[in-house]
Design a protein around this nucleic acid. Structure first.
Length: 290
DNA sequence: GAGACACTATGCACCCTATG
DNA sequence: CATAGGGTGCATAGTGTCTC
């Protein structure tokens, strides 16, 4: 049975022109090398080397066989290099901070894919507010965090984007607006409001402030989007939410786009004060390829 | 009783040392 | 460099035990 040692012997004999020196190079005895060479020639049914006085030289058929053997051993080295490079990212833990909505929507499929590719890397997800994400990143307490609308200079992996939409009780006057007409932030700010934050500092109130407006009549402030939808069915007020938070069944409610459109982008960023680990780099690479 | 698993015996392939 | 004889390791088949 031929093995890799035999092929190393073939290449070594070709390189040295001498079985004894070839044997030393591959770590065999001269006898073993001689037998290995004889075995390989017997198995192939051709003579690869001609034995002459003090010299072992390749035959005509031996030359291409030797080149193929070199290519094979080179390919094996490439496999080893690839595996060695990958070993560094096969184990570890990634601490990830995110706000609840992204944990529930964007991240599960991403983390499932990551777990399939890197089963040895554990991702520990912390549910926090968007402000807390930056604090944890700044303190080096987490490896990666989900942020909103990252600055272009930040090394960020884009997770996704969604738009803010107005949600109105079915009987509300603004609910008669068509999708094309939409509703403006200024119009909404004048209405009785159910403010839902989803645990984020970026919410309807902060969007209004950014636009130079203010919510005049906030009747209730809740954290959960679902709570806001329940209150709106009781005609408490209108609300402004990210599109992704909308439930599949909107019973009694109507969704109208915000005009002009306001988007927000979710991205994964690494802690600024320390270099990302190999595991984190693997996560960001996977995100970039998606 | 059938299948899974562990242990043991046997045969084979390979490499070694000694030698021509 | 090639060959003979011996040692070692591995694969496979056979057997016994355990679990369902």
């Amino acid at each position: 049975m031929m093995n890799l040692m035999h092929w190393r012997m073939v290449v070594a004999v070709a390189d040295t022109g001498n079985i004894t020196r070839a044997a030393e190079r591959v770590g065999m005895t001269q006898s073993g090398a001689s037998q290995a060479l004889a075995l390989i020639e017997e198995t192939l049914g051709v003579q690869l080397f001609s034995r002459e006085n003090r010299q072992t030289l390749p035959t005509a058929i031996g030359l291409p066989v030797i080149e193929q053997a070199r290519a094979m051993l080179g390919a094996l080295e490439n496999i080893r290099s690839t595996v060695d490079a990958a070993k560094g990212i096969q184990r570890g833990t990634i601490r990830l901070a995110s706000f609840p909505m992204v944990l529930a929507t964007f991240l599960p499929p991403l983390l499932r894919q990551f777990n399939r590719l890197y089963p040895g890397i554990q991702v520990v997800a912390l549910e926090v507010s968007d402000d807390e994400v930056e604090t944890l990143l700044g303190g080096g307490l987490v490896d990666v965090g989900v942020v909103l609308n990252p600055a272009p200079e930040r090394n960020a992996g884009r997770l996704g984007r969604d738009a803010w939409v107005a949600v109105l009780p079915g009987g509300h006057p603004l609910a008669r607006r068509s999708v094309e007409e939409g509703v403006s932030l200024a119009e909404l700010a004048e209405q009785p409001f159910v403010l839902a934050t989803g645990g984020c500092s970026t919410n309807a109130r902060s969007l209004a402030i950014d636009a130079g407006l203010q919510l005049h009549d906030v009747r209730v402030e809740v954290r959960e989007w679902s709570s806001a939808f329940t209150l709106m069915r009781e005609n408490i007020g209108v609300t402004l939410v990210p599109e992704m938070t909308l439930p599949s069944q909107l019973q009694g409610l109507r969704v109208v786009p915000l005009i002009p459109r306001i988007d927000r982008e979710f991205a994964l960023v690494v802690a600024a004060n320390k270099p990302p680990s190999a595991a984190v780099q693997a996560l960001l690479s996977m995100l970039a390829e998606n």
